[in-house]
């Protein structure tokens, strides 16, 4: 036991910390853009003209229907043949944003559809343009309703960021795999890696619980016609 603890502290902690930092880099770069893409696709689907709406539907269908790993392979291995070569980090982040954006858009679309139609009518009657009414009135309400779903997507992202390892970007899982291969202590190493993921997910969950509370509006969740 002492030997295991010593190994974790002296040999494993440094590479895993580097790996965790790399994972965080992937997550932090992907989440905001995934969220923005989700909003754009959801708004395009619900309020766009026929062409924009069809484009958004096709995008969501495509990404939802393709394993993330295949999407990452396409971005990393196939795009260079079209003249676009991305680093493992950039390819991973692009794939994560695309995936995150598609799933977020479904949560946000559902939330937009749950906003009472009278909200948009009232905003338009005040003289707000359609876009302004959507941005100022519909989306702030939809965002609150989509938050539990979107926060779930962030948690998925924390876990599926490990797929970047397959594109040779060394993040937490990759760092663990390398350490385990060197030491042959697979059970111990992957148990610690699992604990680090669990810690990150728990912290993210606590943050989103706090955020939900912070953004809560009295009676908003139960307000219906």
């Amino acid at each position: 036991m002492d030997d295991a603890l010593r190994y974790v502290i002296e040999d494993l902690s440094a590479p895993l910390l580097h790996g965790a930092a790399a994972s965080l880099q992937l997550i932090v770069c992907s989440v905001p853009f995934g969220l923005m893409l989700g909003f754009a696709v959801a708004v395009g689907w619900v309020y766009g003209n026929r062409a924009v709406s069809a484009l958004c539907k096709a995008y969501v269908l495509l990404v939802k229907g393709t394993p993330l790993l295949i999407l990452l392979f396409v971005i990393y291995f196939c795009l260079p043949s079209l003249g676009l070569t991305l680093s493992p980090f950039a390819a991973s982040v692009t794939g994560f944003i695309m995936c995150n954006g598609a799933y977020n858009s479904e949560y946000i679309r559902g939330a937009i559809l749950s906003v009472r139609s009278g909200q948009l009518i009232a905003a338009r009657s005040l003289g707000m343009g359609r876009f302004q009414a959507i941005v100022s009135i519909v989306l702030p309400q939809a965002a609150r309703r989509a938050l539990p779903g979107c926060s779930n997507e962030v948690i998925y992202l924390i876990k599926y960021s490990s797929l970047a390892y397959i594109l040779s970007f060394i993040e937490l899982t990759g760092a663990g795999k390398m350490a385990a291969t060197r030491s042959f202590r697979f059970t111990l190493v992957f148990s610690v890696v699992g604990l680090v993921y669990l810690t990150m997910v728990t912290l993210a969950s606590l943050f989103f619980m706090w955020l939900e509370k912070k953004l809560a509006i009295p009676g908003f969740e139960t307000t219906r016609d």
Partner: peptide, 27 residues
């Protein structure tokens, strides 16, 4: 042309003050 609706249609995410203020600021 101001319009008042049967079901009020107050903006659910804003306070009473916010409801009155938003048209002034945004429009």
């Amino acid at each position: 042309m101001g319009m008042v609706f049967q079901n009020f249609y107050l903006f659910d995410h804003l306070t009473a003050l916010g409801n009155v203020e938003i048209g002034l600021v945004k429009v």
